[in-house]
């Protein structure tokens, strides 16, 4: 790979190391879709190995998969790829359970993947939208920790939302 050619088309590869030691080799153009990595690349310049002690390999892998899809679709860039990206995003979030959603969100936020954070937060929002309180509790297994009467009080305070 490391030929001495100076053509600008040679893509630089970065090694990303997750908290559990798993490493990923990704093209710079893919990894720099993540703001945090973009900053590290710009600041540290020649460093090719980037350690990410806050992200587990499983979720880093998923984040990178998302970046790769978006980077690929954007190289042929024209607006038609918005459609492809949207379709692919829909697939990406389709059956994520809440544990995965949690870890992906934490990873995406840590890596400053703004677009991915938006995609995931909107996914969580879609699981809340139009639902009754009991249904939301059931979806996310949220236990009410209110003292007797407290919940009633809050309901009263925001009564307009429960009409």
């Amino acid at each position: 790979m490391s030929s001495s050619s100076t053509t600008t088309t040679t893509t630089r590869l970065l090694m990303l190391k997750a908290s559990d030691g798993v490493t990923f080799e990704v093209e710079e153009a893919v990894a720099t879709k993540l703001g945090a990595i973009n900053n590290m690349v710009e600041e540290e310049g020649s460093e090719d190995l980037i350690c990410l002690p806050n992200v587990n390999g499983k979720f880093l892998g998923m984040v990178l998969e998302w970046c790769k899809k978006h980077a690929n679709n954007n190289t042929n860039s024209d607006k038609g790829n918005d459609e492809v990206n949207k379709w692919w995003d829909k697939e990406f979030v389709m059956d994520l359970d809440q544990n995965t959603l949690y870890h992906l969100l934490m990873a995406a936020d840590y890596l400053s993947g703004t677009e991915l954070v938006d995609l995931l937060t909107e996914k969580v929002a879609s699981m809340i939208r139009g639902k009754k309180v009991e249904e939301i509790r059931e979806t996310f297994k949220i236990k009410s920790d209110f003292l007797p009467g407290q919940e009633e009080e809050i309901r009263k305070k925001n009564s307009w939302a429960f009409e």
Partner: peptide
């Protein structure tokens, strides 16, 4: 997450916990 929701839906989450 709340910012993506209609205001009623967002307000209702206040009684979850």
């Amino acid at each position: 997450i709340l910012s993506f929701l209609p205001r009623e839906d967002a307000a209702r989450t206040s009684v979850l916990s």
